[in-house]
Simulated assay, not measured.
Amino acid sequence: MTVEFGNVVTVSAAKQIAESIRAAIIDGRLQVDSRLPTEEELAHRFKVSRPTVREALKRLAAQHLIRSRRGPTGGNFVASPAPDEAAQSLANATTLMVAVGEFSLDDMATARLELEGVCCRLATVHRTDEQLEVMQRELTTQRDTLLTDEEFCASDVRFHRALVDASGNPILRFLMHALVEALQPVSNMIIYRVRDRQSIIGFHERILSAVARRDADAGERALNDLVGYTREQYREALERRAKRAG
């Protein structure tokens, strides 16, 4: 199959070539598992050098859009979507945006409350006994007084990941990956000195109980209280930082 790509200009040629191929993948002109033209063919088509084509292919590989295979039947192929890899890329980008100040933790709390609230309501309908057991195991872990702050944070993340998984909605799971996997650890690192573990455990117990009883309203109230508590602890942590700096 011959695929027509748009013309490119010489400035940032590798980037434009990557975008042209990406567009062909997204709109279906290049199907999953189809083989891309060779580097030589692409260089001739785009009127650029092979190193420029290689750079474009590296960009596509970094976006998980293509994969390479060696051997007589090898080459570069359109990759099948990998939700976990894409979600992790989103989480990494989100963490960076927080680090440079593009997203505030208050923005995060608002987004988390809205999205995880939907997940919580859906979880009361779609949750399984196995998912309840996962959440219960994390609660048991969190009650261990010998747990380090890092271990408690990791368990906190796993608890909310299980809640999101219980929603049964793959799109929400994908979107919440950025909030739960990236932003919650950042928040925990800031507030761990001022938060009370027993308070966090108490909110988690209320959430789990509501999901187990299939009580959507109670689940959302518990989640709302947890996010409100986190916001307050975040403000307190920032005040303490300001005093030390002063």
Rank of each mutant, 00 (worst) to 15 (best):
K58N: 11
R67G: 05
A162G: 12
A43K: 13
D156N: 13
R206V: 01
L172I: 03
S104P: 09
M176L: 14
V227K: 01
Y192Q: 12
H204P: 00
F174C: 04
A166H: 04
A93E: 03
T230Q: 10
A87P: 01
V186C: 03
D27A: 05
T2V: 02
R221Y: 11
D149N: 15
A222M: 00
R221C: 08
L65Q: 15
M135E: 00
Q184S: 07
F152I: 03
R206K: 13
T94K: 08
V53M: 01
A218T: 02
H177L: 04
P83S: 05
D33C: 05
V194W: 02
P83E: 01
R137T: 10
E39R: 06
T230M: 10
A13H: 04
N76H: 12
F5W: 00
E151S: 09
Q233E: 15
V8A: 07
S155N: 08
V98Y: 11
A82H: 05
R69S: 09
V9H: 07
E39G: 10
R231L: 08
P51G: 05
P83H: 05
S49M: 06
N92R: 08
L223S: 04
Q233I: 05
A216M: 15
S20Q: 09
T10R: 14
P72G: 12
R193Y: 03
T145W: 06
E41T: 14
V157T: 09
V11I: 09
G202T: 14
S49H: 07
A162Y: 14
D107Q: 15
H160S: 01
S155R: 05
F159V: 02
G168Y: 01
Y234G: 13
L105R: 04
N169V: 10
I26A: 11
R67N: 07
V180G: 02
D149K: 14
Q131R: 09
V164E: 02
P51S: 03
D106R: 03
G74E: 00
Q142C: 11
P170D: 03
G74D: 01
A56H: 04
R240E: 13
